[in-house]
Write a protein that binds this DNA or RNA. Structure first.
Lengths: 193, 193
DNA sequence: CCGATATTTCAGTAAATTCTGAAACTTCAG
DNA sequence: CTGAAGTTTCAGAATTTACTGAAATATCGG
């Protein structure tokens, strides 16, 4: 591996982290390298820097493309493929979450819906179905919320995240403003440190 | 594998899903089984139902315990260990997120902070550091937000998630309410990097 | 169409992970 | 203290996943 120390540290770390996710070490390293690079890299560049085989890089890049995590581009007068990551890191997060949802959450939701349609044949199955419904409802709540968030512009999304639970206080204020006529619809006042 | 069809479908699915996360098939299956079960199971129960070796179950349970994802309990007059998952599915989510943060995000944040302390030795390293700072700031924003959410009671958390982006509208209303006197105390817009 | 360059595929191997059975250890009742 | 029941550990086997080099395929300028 042929990298400046600072970059190497990061690349190795992401290689290991990749293993914890479904992604393999090389794919993690390639992405880390592209993420840090100021200009797009071609496959041969990556081979040199990471010291892995050309075919391994080819497969890794294919995998990253299937995740929509890299941009493919060309340099004038050069027919090699050059790869880079989006400049906007939030775009990366959005894509990552979207793809994981597509591969993990959506199939699970489909399966849960199917299983919930069936008639339970025993007490045991009845209880299991109740449990699955809890999971289904939770997943649905989360994906609906996620769809909402994904729709926001980044600036607003960041605003909202920065607010954190302060949003609760604002909701209380809103309640007070709109409930001037003594409605019973009050939100209880919580303490948030 | 000796399970009612409905339960088996779910258990198999979670086994495969487990592989996509860092977790192995058996561990995924064990958890799925415990999650659906109406009463706690001992290791031998799990062996029978999943048809895997006793030692495999033992290791799987150890792994789940290290994630704080199972409750260990005892039945009167029986010295075998019985395992179950929390009744409250939100508790499971909280634990899962907490543990993943501990294993994946926190070490990465530590590494990023260390690397950001160093003096870049080249233009390439300088650019890489800038990139790492973007990532650091993003992770920090997300973990701060997460800490806030983790602090909320479940009922309130669900309220908030259900609101989704409607919260935005309320924020706008709040702005209007508080800016009647042309104050400059507006919600800050954009990144403050 | 040719040859030069670039990329992908793929079969075989290497490496890593998972799983098992046997042995070691622990706990507890008598 | 003994032995039965329960649990964990661990070395090796089985399986899965990752990686490589060589061959096949694709692309393009001339």
């Amino acid at each position: 591996m042929n990298l400046p120390p600072l970059i190497q540290t990061f690349v190795l770390h992401f290689g290991e982290m990749g293993s914890r996710w479904g992604i393999n070490r090389t794919v993690g390293q390639i992405y880390a390298l592209l993420f840090l690079s100021s200009e797009p890299l071609n496959a041969e560049d990556i081979v040199e820097r990471l010291g892995v085989s050309r075919s391994n890089v080819s497969m890794g890049l294919k995998e990253l493309q299937s995740w929509n995590l890299v941009r493919l581009q060309h340099m004038p007068g050069d027919r090699r493929d050059y790869f880079s990551t989006p400049d906007d890191i939030w775009q990366i997060v959005r894509t990552l979450v979207e793809e994981r949802k597509k591969r993990e959450i959506d199939p699970t939701l489909t399966l849960l819906r199917e299983v919930l349609m069936q008639e339970p044949a025993s007490t045991e199955e009845r209880h299991a179905q109740a449990r699955m419904r809890e999971m289904h409802d939770l997943f649905e709540l989360l994906t609906d919320w996620y769809a909402d968030m994904q729709r926001l512009e980044t600036v607003r999304l960041v605003q909202l995240l920065k607010l954190g639970t302060k949003v609760q206080k604002i909701l209380d204020i809103k309640d007070r403003v709109f409930l001037t006529s003594g409605s019973k619809n009050r939100r209880s006042s919580g303490k948030d440190k």
